[in-house]
Design a protein around this nucleic acid. Sequence first.
DNA 1: GCCGAAGTGGAACGAATGTTATACAACGGT
DNA 2: ACCGTTGTATAACATTCGTTCCACTTCGGC
Lengths: 187, 187
Amino acid sequence: MPRFVDVEERRVELTDAAARLIARAGIGAATMREVAAEAGLSTGSLTHYFADKRELLLCTFQASLSGRRSQRAERAPDAASQLRATLEGALPVDDDRRRHWMVTVAFCAQAAGDDELADAQRDAYREFRSHVARQVERAGIADGDRAVVVAERFIAAVDGVAIQALFDPESWPAERQLAALDDLLRA
Amino acid sequence: MPRFVDVEERRVELTDAAARLIARAGIGAATMREVAAEAGLSTGSLTHYFADKRELLLCTFQASLSGRRSQRAERAPDAASQLRATLEGALPVDDDRRRHWMVTVAFCAQAAGDDELADAQRDAYREFRSHVARQVERAGIADGDRAVVVAERFIAAVDGVAIQALFDPESWPAERQLAALDDLLRA
DNA sequence: GCCGAAGTGGAACGAATGTTATACAACGGT
DNA sequence: ACCGTTGTATAACATTCGTTCCACTTCGGC
């Protein structure tokens, strides 16, 4: 087995390139040629690491999801701070999180007519809901089913702010997004 | 001027066909041929009413927006009921509103890399925010700038629920969406 | 030193897309 | 009755897409 290249790393480079293109110019701009060029490779190499365009896009989506998941890992002193950090991770307050959000929206739109993608989206959402609900319980805000309902309300509020912020950044600088989050947690 | 055909009506039929396709199978499925076929016409007729595909999509988006705007028109007895009706109009509680939401999400994703579309989206959102803020004032919930902030919070909460309901309808039947809306207005 | 597998680039193909052009049908004005 | 405009359908166009294929390079094993 000659020629040592870290396959997984190369795949990450390619899905990163795809995510960058999608965030910048929409999912329609993520053609095989454009993705390869963005990663500094050729289409021949691209097909060497992903059999299909479909596989490339699915991996791009899942990489974006796991990127968001890893952001949660940052530990905070107490349960309330952890909850706040988790919700803050879902706000487009910097370029990186903004990029993740644009990719998420693009795949939301793509999920229409693609059942596999829709399932992945739904499962990711439910997993996130469980995660937030667990932190709500730890923070002593609510228990059991009530915690899930509270988590849903928190997520809905944060997502709503995120969407407004995505397409009207002038009205929603980072500080205003964080202020809205604090208002939410205070109530 | 021979051959009487209601041009505006025909254009509505075509943008409706486009909206149906987008909601059903994503914006990628809205090709010129598919839209024409969905409307029961040929591409020759389609180009007769819309110079470009771009014009067709822009008109489809604006038609979806004005459709949502007209839904607000239903009068309610008091200011609080009007506010509730407006916010309920932003929830995908039936097939029609669900369709509008899918189209909105599709164009949200498309707005990346299309400044004109992004501007239209932002302006529509601001107009909706003003509308809700006015109803918040009339309902005596808040005044002036506070009314705008309250409106933003309401819209964020409703949009967040809408997105969760779009991609996880099992968890979000219509009654649960409306219950979440009532919870929101009670607080 | 040579062989073969892994990696890479680039060309080529068929299919599909947006767009344009052309031919025909339908109807009002004179 | 004829003409010109409007509406519609079909075909063809160039372009672009995903995909496939082939030549070339690079390295480890024998």
